[in-house]
Design a protein around this nucleic acid. Structure first.
Length: 468
RNA sequence: GGCGCGGUAGCCAAGUGGUAAGGCACGGGUCUGCAAAACCUGUAUUCACCGGUUCGAAUCCGGUCCGCGCCUCCA
């Protein structure tokens, strides 16, 4: 089986996804800030990371997947106070909501999901190491900053030279605490307590305060994966400054290389525009369900484009995804019927879907993989309909199909979408008219249901409702 | 200005030197009270534009036009 590979932002080349320790592929993904519902853009990143993990595991490699929860930062602190809730109460609510969404999207649960606020002591220890080695300094107000000039290779990930960073740092509202910095490009490791933080402060050797944003990922990834691990991922926007800063902090503290491979996924656009609150296009999973689509359709959309290119999310693309998925479900259903009680060899091969795995293994080429999947499905459908497929083979192919679906994270059971009561009543009336052979009345009712956005599908002994 | 990603059928999208995958949508057919679903089948002489290299280019080289992202806390 082909060894999977991935494009590495640091070396700008394809790198094999093989574990450095020869056993477990250890990787870290920057997780959500739990201050509101995650939107489709966040999910693009998490779904792509999920497929990456599934491909590595599909290659027979064990993984250790760590994804943090950012539950202490400017936004969580501000919003919790606005709502008059404790930070804990506030972030717990949104974390639960995030987990519910992840489940609906069939995202594998990370092996460790560390909370930033629960790891403040290890962050403090790391800051102390950096100060001791001359890479950080405490300012008069009790904040601690990283001394960027002390780390020679700063900028190696984002391709920025130190000079450009400082000269480009203009037009962004400088806050008061920046006057305490030796250099404008130095960033905060520890932020001294401010009145607007309310009760959210933790003791440290430099006084009460809270960790800077970048610190949690360095401290927690090293704690759970070791000083050097296999891969670190996130959205492209995190390349600079977040991941650049993580490298600077971690490598300065340990003296060892941090992550071996850097994996970044491109952003999601919505209807051709950047997502933003002001445009009102920060869609959530609930928005998608309200429009009658299930979570799997969103997953399909996310893998229909290459992860390194911006993907344009549209309602049309969601509809297309839902239809494509329906076809796969139908194929699975047909195989099941043909297989009956027959059992084929449940070997661990990909069978007719080997090419699908190969496409995914080569830099996670999901669109190519989908093309190969449907090509194989089409061939098998033809054989199935010309009685050229024995039940034993159908059974075996079905098992192989399911293994292949697992690579994408697709579940073939559709999430039922309940039609409104009014629609269901009309549909029932049409069924009654039909069985009474009053076809004029039946057609009239079908048209009404259609106007309300639903299509009636008749089966032998009943009907079902699907979105138009 | 710097760094990065792109411009392939109505829409989405693969293909990085050998003569355009695949999905959705659409047309035709089988089936069906109708319809839907399902299956079969058809649909780009052409890959933003202009030159060049080559027996051969969507793919390589030079130039032009256009879109998008990042450049200090946004996945």
């Amino acid at each position: 089986m082909k060894t999977p590979s991935i494009y590495d932002t640091l070396t700008r080349s394809l790198q094999p996804l093989s574990p450095a320790d020869g056993e477990t592929f250890r990787f870290y993904c920057c997780g959500p800030t739990v201050y509101g519902p995650a939107h489709v853009g966040n999910f693009r990143t998490f779904i792509i990371q999920d497929v990456l993990r599934r491909v590595i595991e599909g290659a027979g490699i064990a993984t250790k997947h760590v994804r943090n929860i950012t539950d202490v930062d400017d936004k969580t602190i501000r919003e919790s106070q606005t709502e008059g809730k404790s930070l804990k109460e506030f972030t717990t609510y949104w974390l639960d909501r995030f987990h519910t969404d992840c489940q609906a999207l069939n995202l594998l649960t990370p092996h460790v999901e560390p909370s930033a606020v629960a790891h403040i002591p290890s962050q403090i220890r790391m800051i102390e190491q950096l100060i001791a080695k001359g890479h950080a300094y405490a300012a008069e107000d009790g904040s601690v900053y990283y001394r960027v000039s002390s780390f020679d290779s700063y900028g190696k990930l984002s391709n920025l030279q130190g000079r450009e960073i400082t000269t480009c740092a203009h037009g962004h509202g400088h806050t008061d605490d920046e006057y305490d910095r030796e250099s404008a490009s130095d960033f905060a490791l520890w932020k001294a307590h401010k009145p607007e933080d309310g009760p959210n402060a933790w003791p440290s050797p430099w006084g009460d305060g809270r960790p800077g944003w970048h610190m949690e990922c360095s401290a927690m990834s090293i704690e759970y994966l070791g000083e050097t691990f296999d891969l670190h991922g996130g959205g492209v926007d995190l390349i600079f400054p977040h991941h650049e800063n993580e490298i600077a902090q971690s490598e300065a503290a340990t003296g060892k290389p941090f992550a071996r491979i850097w994996f970044h996924s491109a952003h999601l656009m919505v209807e051709g525009q950047k997502m933003s609150k002001s445009l009102g296009n920060l869609y959530t999973l609930d928005d998608i369900r309200e429009r009658g689509y299930d979570a799997m359709a969103l997953r399909y959309v996310m893998v229909s484009g290459n992860y390194r290119q911006p993907l344009n999310f549209t309602w049309d693309s969601l509809k297309a995804g839902q239809s494509a998925l329906r076809r796969l479900r139908q194929f699975d259903h047909d195989l099941m019927r043909l297989a009956g009680s027959a059992t084929g060899d449940a070997d661990n091969a990909w069978g007719p879907f080997e090419a699908v795995y190969d496409a995914l293994a080569e830099n996670l080429n999901t669109p190519d993989a989908l093309g190969r999947l449907f090509k194989a499905v089409h061939d098998l459908e033809r054989r199935l309909h010309t009685n050229d497929l024995a039940p034993e083979e159908a059974s075996r192919v079905r098992a192989q199909l399911h293994r292949t679906m697992d690579l994408f994270g697709f579940t073939l059971e559709s999430e039922p979408v309940e039609a409104p009561e009014e629609v269901r009543q009309l549909a029932q009336q049409r069924w009654d008219a039909k069985t009474a052979r009053d076809f004029a009345r039946a057609d009239e009712l079908r048209a009404k249901v259609s106007e309300l956005g639903w299509t009636i599908r008749d089966a032998k002994d009943g009907f079902e409702l699907v979105r138009n």
